[in-house]
Design a protein around this nucleic acid. Sequence first.
RNA 1: GGAGAGAUGGCUGAGCUGGUCGAAAGCGCUCGACUCGAAAUCGAGUGUACCACUAACAAGUGGUACCGUGGGUUCGAAUCCCACUCUCUCCGCCA
Length: 424
Amino acid sequence: MIDLELFRKNPQIFKSEIEKRGLKIDISSGIELDRKKRDLILKIDRLRSEKNIASKTIPGLKGEKKNKEISRMKEINEDLKKMETELNDIENKFILHFSAYPNLSHVSTPAGKDESGNVVESYFGKKPEFDFKPENHIDLGTNLDILDEKRAAKISGSRFVFLKNEAVLLEFALVRYVLNILTDKGFTLLLPPLLVKEMAMYGTGFFPVEKTQYYKTELDDLFLIGTSEVPLCGYHSNEFLESDALPLKYAAFSTCFRREAGSYGKDLGGLFRVHQFDKIEMFIFAHPDKSWEEYEGLRDILEEIIKGLGLHYRIVNMCTGDIGTPNAKKYDLEAWLPGQENYRELASCSHDTDFQARRLNIKYKDGKKKDLVHTMNSTACAVGRTLIAIFENYQDCNGNIRIPEALLPYMNGMKIISRRKKDK
RNA sequence: GGAGAGAUGGCUGAGCUGGUCGAAAGCGCUCGACUCGAAAUCGAGUGUACCACUAACAAGUGGUACCGUGGGUUCGAAUCCCACUCUCUCCGCCA
């Protein structure tokens, strides 16, 4: 949610933000709604005030006077009822309208209407060289019998997979590797609920805009999370945080669920775009004065994790047209996938300033001063996609996959996943 | 799933035969006094959101709403009625 006080003072800021992002929102109807709402609140408050005064004098009255006053209050109540219904109607429109407004983007976020406006900011490492034609992760995984999408399709449909054999061990090795780093960095580890109430989805900014992307349970009005950002962000909702305690840093491992509605044939097959995947997410509640510093540090941690796996990647500064509604700024980390001969998104790191905090009412207290905190989040490791990167970058000419050095301590001596099940 | 109890301000906890209740009391916290300093003691203060006016890089005054959530009854509800949510206890079931 945007800062409405700022909107009143200077709606032009929001108009130009909306344009920068290529959105279509008519701010004049926002101004109109806001004005109507406030006029009505003023009228209603005055009537209520009158009522309150009367209800204090009525007990002291008697007979005729009392009855007169009571019937006058009855009339006021009728007027009030009409106005309250009207206000309710306006408020619904108001919320619907303003919840579509994007956060204000940071000065360092490049302007651009779509992904063509994104700016590559840095590269790490270099492309691995192969003296054979590298395979994609689907062929590699299927041949090694560590990935099975056919059978997954049989029971769950498309965009589901079984991880099998060594891939399962590799997933947990990856998780251990990442959790160790995050523990060292002072993150509090969480295993969050995967089902959440609608309010949590709204507060994090995923609703109402992306509502069709998520699964809903039929009997209980709960939603399957698409990322643990949702329970992490909601963790401190409606709380005052002590400013001394900031920044609060959390990391959660969770399975994530996405309907991928509208992506049709995009990235079909394999692990890249699936309805269900595991992810470790980092989340920070920070003091507004320190949050941008903290944000760069968050990206550093993400890079450290991926660097440690020996992967070649680039950092992309996403433009206004390509970042999410709650984001003021967003970096994507794109890893090189030899099987696709392309950089693909492995992780993203977003700064949401006070946008989520306003919806979820998360504030800090610093002596007398009270204000909204800033929130930011970053993937620490999207397990499925990282496995893809490992499969493709660590393959050899026999279709085997070496275990990255950083994961060796967690693999019980296994150094390579070999093609022994080739012909089965 | 069955039976019961409960949800009040930062916390504990009164009020719940409807009317100075935004809400007693205690604790905590803040400021002040005492003290070389501290503890103890004494005094004062101590919720949030929204609206209006004044004023403005901070605040003041007035008003409205909020006693789990949403409705209802009433001139008037923390107090009565309905629905829902959550928590706890016991039973059942279960990884």
